[in-house]
Design a binder for these strands. Structure first.
Length: 416
DNA sequence: TCTGGGGTCCTAGGACCC
DNA sequence: TCTGGGGTCCTAGGACCC
């Protein structure tokens, strides 16, 4: 059964274009949180040789010079459009794995004209959502990924990779193979393995020597032997993280407590959404900048006596963690909370000394319902209430477009 | 001056147990 | 002087993905 990979082109940039059609052939770039890095580029921006993940400040002049349209990340919009794309894709298959916000693997029945199928997918998604997609088809996930890469290279909307054109793998650079990153790519390159076709020809021993078992599985997949099954059910997650870089450094514990209250509230909401409870909460505080040598991490892990997703208990743990991790005279630029040791929220093992109160779950349910309808900050814990609004530590995102599809007050306006 | 956020898996080494 | 073998669990670090 062939594997079909559907990949949205320049997804975030394409989302911005859906509601501002005049940007269709203009350079568009989307920035990461805090407006730090460039995380999505339209073809026009790619043509300027601005790499993915490049710091914005280094390329600002180049972008300004061509009149590029720059956006702060608007994940609420991207998430909603992604959902619409995925619903459209469901109409083509019985089994689908939503692999990321902009990609899905589909299992389709064997059929004579796969190119035509790719074209049909492209057209329906474009018509129903306004998002352009690319389709790669192969015998395994890794081959479907390679096919998608070849589609990009040959400027086709669909690329079918099979026995007959297997040698096209010579056009795929080794570090562009799914599962081969920069490090392994460089290592393979030093040993004269520069394309996907070379990788295919490695012996198992060689593959194992240059990489690890995951690398070996990648080689098998390139040969046409499936090792990575389609995961229609998302596996239960093992951790939930909420972290942010600050717009302005935080150097007093009271403000950090306000920060962590917000972060824990978000993480707890994610836990409840997935019906999970955490046994452990890890608090981490970072000083300096990632790319500077003096960066330091202060952290603490709190073990909870009972797995929970009840925000007040997690807040208690976070405060204890803050107390342990905080080092005086520090100036923190980023912080986060990590919940792990996750178990299903019910049935939770009862605790002899802290019996659960059924009203807790009801309270959290009410809180989540309100915040889902009215926005994350509609109801917050008092400790999260900032002195100033927005607080100085808030993430910078001055260029964010309206959340057209998820907020009533931000609906697009049409003029006749 | 300014460099994101959220995940997974593998491996090696240390602690600990019998 | 001579000091085993097998197992588990945890952690940190490194690799990868989008």
């Amino acid at each position: 059964m062939p594997v079909v990979l559907v990949d949205c082109n320049n997804f975030y940039a394409s989302c911005e274009r859906v509601f501002v059609p005049r940007l269709r052939d203009k350079p568009v770039a989307v920035l990461s949180n805090n407006d730090g890095c460039i995380i999505a580029r339209s073809d026009e921006v790619k043509a300027l040789n601005i790499p993915m993940g490049a710091p914005y400040f280094k390329h600002r002049e180049t972008l300004d010079a061509v009149g590029a349209h720059i956006f702060s990340a608007n994940f609420e919009l991207y998430g909603d459009l992604s959902r619409r794309v995925m619903h459209t894709l469901e109409t083509f298959c019985n089994q689908m794995e939503v692999y990321s916000i902009d990609e899905a693997f589909l299992h389709v029945p064997a059929q004579s004209d796969l190119t035509q199928l790719g074209e049909a997918i492209h057209q329906r998604v474009a018509r129903w959502t306004g998002i352009p997609v690319r389709v790669g088809i192969g015998a395994t996930k890794t081959l479907a990924k390679a096919a998608s890469e070849l589609a990009k290279k040959t400027k086709k909307r669909t690329f079918v990779l099979d026995e007959r054109n297997r040698t096209a793998l010579a056009q795929v650079k080794v570090e562009d193979v799914w599962g081969i990153g920069r490090r392994w790519g460089a290592r393979l390159r030093r040993n004269h393995i520069t394309t996907a076709l070379h990788l295919c020809g490695l012996s198992d021993q060689q593959a194992r020597r240059y990489m690890n078992v995951i690398g070996l599985r990648t080689v098998y997949e390139l040969r046409g032997t499936p090792c990575f099954p389609l995961e229609a059910q998302p596996p239960t997650r093992k951790s939930v993280v909420h972290s942010r870089s600050f717009g302005e450094a935080v150097s007093d514990p009271a403000t950090m407590r306000e920060v962590l209250t917000t972060f824990v509230s978000r993480a707890a909401m994610k836990l409840r959404r997935d019906k999970l409870a955490a046994h452990m909460l890890h608090v981490f505080l970072l000083t300096g900048h990632r790319h500077k040598p003096d960066a330091r991490q202060d952290a603490a892990t709190i073990h909870l006596s009972q797995a929970t997703n009840y925000t007040p208990w997690l807040l208690q743990a976070a405060n204890a963690g803050l107390h342990k991790a905080w080092r005086p005279n520090s100036s923190y630029t980023k912080a986060g909370v990590l919940c792990y040791g996750l178990v299903p929220e019910s049935p939770t093992q009862g605790h002899l000394f802290f019996p659960t109160d059924p009203r807790h779950a009801a309270l959290m349910h009410t809180l989540d319902t309100i915040n889902r309808k009215a926005g994350h900050d509609a109801v917050v814990f008092a400790a999260a209430r900032p002195q100033k609004k927005p607080p100085a530590w808030a993430t910078r995102c001055t260029l964010r477009s309206p959340r057209y599809t998820t907020r009533w007050e931000e609906l697009p306006t049409a003029y006749a």
